[in-house]
């Protein structure tokens, strides 16, 4: 297990380096000049050149890359052009909103998906299965930000039960949590549609395995065989897809944060785009990639903890 973890850790490091290279390439090397974008098309070439020099954009690419990564490793992400403040704290405060939102949404999605997926698999071909599959088909089609708007219409506009948006800050934990509920529902329910289908087919596959019959022949009840024998075997594919889907969840969070005017990472990045604050966007995208890659690393480890075959011959 330790050996396996070290091996995955090496892959993780390599993936992170590759991700940083891609982000750097798209945002800093490809034709197009960040200084030009920042100043807009009306700026004089002299002003653009001056800003480019100030930002170090006139230096060769490897130097700039080294400078970026070196700074990031020391916790120095540079200064935001629009806010004039360090980028690190800016991103940290936005993460304080986005991270809980993503976790709440993922937990909700996983809860719904496991319950509905196992239920549907257990009742394959019957009415219950058809209802779950139909509902998930609709869930796949509904854009999460539209669901978010619909939730606002119902709970904020009509029923006046919840605020239509905004975030009071973690100084008031209960109200802050309350402000995240509708966004988490909008994100989680849509995400659950994909995961329910994955869960159903993974559980169905496990139910057809020979060892299920062995378990039943031992006197294990149908229900207990489902939960103790089939579900653990289905969990590896389910977790893997959950990890991959997390990237989509983060992307969804960016949009849904916008619906509810939450000061999260998504809004920070969008504002930075309209402020032409390229450096903030670059670091925000990189951070998102790091979170997604790290989460998939954790998923790999979790799968290995579940399935002894994945961690090799070490017993």
């Amino acid at each position: 297990m330790v050996l396996y973890a070290l091996q995955r850790l090496a892959v993780l490091a390599a993936t992170l380096v590759a991700a940083s290279l891609i982000v750097f390439a798209v945002m800093s090397i490809l034709p197009g000049n960040a200084a030009q974008t920042m100043l807009g098309s009306t700026a004089t070439p002299e002003a653009v050149a001056a800003l480019a020099h100030k930002l170090g954009l006139d230096q060769p690419a490897p130097v700039r890359y080294a400078h970026w990564i070196g700074g990031a490793l020391r916790g120095d992400f540079g200064l935001s052009y629009a806010y004039g403040s360090p980028i690190g704290p800016l991103i940290a405060s936005s993460l304080a909103v986005s991270a809980p939102l993503a976790i709440m949404a993922m937990a909700l999605a996983a809860g719904i998906a496991l319950a509905a997926g196992v239920y549907a698999a257990d009742r394959r071909g019957r009415t219950g299965d058809a209802i779950v599959m139909g509902a998930s088909q609709i869930g796949l089609a509904v854009p999460n930000f539209w669901l978010a708007i619909l939730l606002v219409i119902v709970f904020a506009v009509s029923l006046r039960l919840a605020p239509a948006g905004g975030f009071p800050g973690w100084g008031e934990p209960m109200r802050a949590l309350g402000a995240l509920i509708l966004p988490a529902v909008a994100l989680g329910v849509v995400q659950a549609a994909v995961l329910t289908r994955v869960t159903r087919s993974a559980v169905l596959e496990a139910l057809n395995e020979d060892f299920m019959r062995t378990a039943r022949a031992k006197g294990v009840s149908r229900r207990s065989a489902l939960w103790r024998h089939a579900l653990p075997n289905a969990l590896v594919p389910i977790l893997t897809i959950m990890g991959l889907q997390f990237a989509n969840l983060i992307a969804g969070a960016i949009v849904v944060e916008n619906v509810f005017v939450l000061p999260g990472l998504g809004r920070l990045m969008l504002q930075s785009i309209s402020n032409r604050d390229t450096l903030v966007v670059e670091n925000g995208v990189m951070l998102t990639a790091i979170i997604v890659i790290a989460l998939n690393f954790v998923v790999d480890l979790a799968c290995a903890a579940i399935d002894p075959r994945l961690r090799g011959l070490a017993a």
């Binding site: 993936t15 991700a19 960040a34 974008t37 990237a247 960016i254 785009i273 966007v281 925000g284 995208v285």
Partner: peptide, 21 residues
């Protein structure tokens, strides 16, 4: 495998922030 870490929205944010929406 690697591109899966970048959902369309994220790459769109990268692109638009460099080249405009």
């Amino acid at each position: 495998d690697f591109v899966f870490a970048f959902p369309a929205l994220l790459s769109a944010i990268m692109l638009t922030s460099t080249y405009g929406p």
